[in-house]
Nucleic acid binder design. Sequence first.
RNA 1: GGCGACGUAGCCAAGUGGCCUAAGGCAGAGGUUUGCAAAACCUCCAUUCGGCGGUUCGAAUCCGCCCGUCGCCUCCA
Length: 454
Amino acid sequence: MQLYNTLTRHKEEFVPAGDEVTMYVCGLTVYDDMHIGHALGTITFEVLHRYLEWRGYKVKRIQNFTDVDDKIINRAQKEEISSEELSQSYIDAFFDDMAGLNVMLATEYPRATQSMDQIIAVIADLIEKGFAYESEGSVYFDVRKDKTYGELSHRSLDDMLQGTRFDPEPGKNYPADFALWKLSKDGEPAWESPWSDGRPGWHIECSAMAYEHLGKVIDIHGGGLDLVFPHHENEISQSKAFTSEDTFARFWMHNGMLRLSGEKMSKSIGNIVRVHDVLADHSSDAFRLWIYTSHYRSPLLYDQQGLDVAERAARRIRTAIVPRDATSDSTPLAAGEFEDRFIAAMDDDMNVPQAMAVVFDLVRDINRSADAGVDVVAAQDKLRELTSVLGLTLEELATEAGDLDESVIQGLLDQRAESRAQRDFAAADRIRDELQAMGVAITDSPDGTTWSRT
RNA sequence: GGCGACGUAGCCAAGUGGCCUAAGGCAGAGGUUUGCAAAACCUCCAUUCGGCGGUUCGAAUCCGCCCGUCGCCUCCA
């Protein structure tokens, strides 16, 4: 499988270093609801996980929660609850959204606050090795000690300093140095350390947790494109300093940003669409199919209509797995060619849009063959298999009809069948409209009438 | 200012030197089927890939310039 590696800016053949694929994905800072940009990134790496497993690899995927951070502290103070309560409530919400999106969970979800011993040990080691220094109760990483600093974002320290958005902190020896440990003010969450009662900087938790759960060198490190600099750059630097290895992650993968009205969807800009809101009137399949129209490294523009379009596309796939009777003796439809094409697409840097094109080609072939009476059972099984690799459920969106008494629907259907038998089509159509208004779509066929939720 | 990405049909979007007279989804047109629908199936729907030059036997794909959009440059998925 070829994967694009941000480090080398090329697609490279991916082979795990050991028996299982080790994957670390930067997760959320839990101070607010999850928005669909977070879902885009999460699903990108979840699909990679599903695909690698389907191809026979064992995968260990770790996704962290940043549950100590200035924004969490501020928000908790505003709501007059503890930081723990606040972050826990958003972690709970996160798992609700994961279930709603049919996301296969990661192997583990470590939290910064539960990895404090490990974080402090790494920082102490970095000081001992001379890569970090203490200053006024805080600890900073000395980026000038790392001659390869900038290798991921492909820029030199000089380039970075030209950015001029540096707000030099008094304790730093050098503006580009970053905090490993921060002294906490009164009333802020704090952990005991050799340097002060404080809390970890943002970057160190990922290195410490990756090391703790996956080892010194990991196969794949993932996250959003906006994390390349400084977050992942700093992770590489401090991790290499700590482990003395010449690399931290063999592959760095970054997904494109979700945009809303031209701008990146971001909590700080405030142009947010919550996962929860999208799932209120769209199936997870529709959300995924919408995402799957574009490649994971491309930016994606939020589009309400795009979700509606995807809903119809989802229905098209669901229709193709409805059981069909074979009435012909001809050879059953084989799906091997489609599977080969699916694999070829996915092996090319997870080209999910291409893989979806294959899926839709299979859908057409199933419908065509089934109409001709050909046995499509095996092909339908293959369709289910391939779509499940992409996390599709092929289940209908539960709507108000879900709360309806099915006997009521059946009663109306019986009435309509009676009307049709008497060729009173006006009455039959009235009942059909009535059902439609309830969210029930009906389909007549020679074998009778079936219904589904819309 | 520095680094980088993108611009393909009405919309979304794949394709990055010949298999492209360019996937797939949605929308649209005609047809089959149906009491009528819906769904499904068949046919059609970009001689063309932001613009202008260049390299090449050959370019949507490589190079240059221009126009437009976006990301990162210590909050960010």
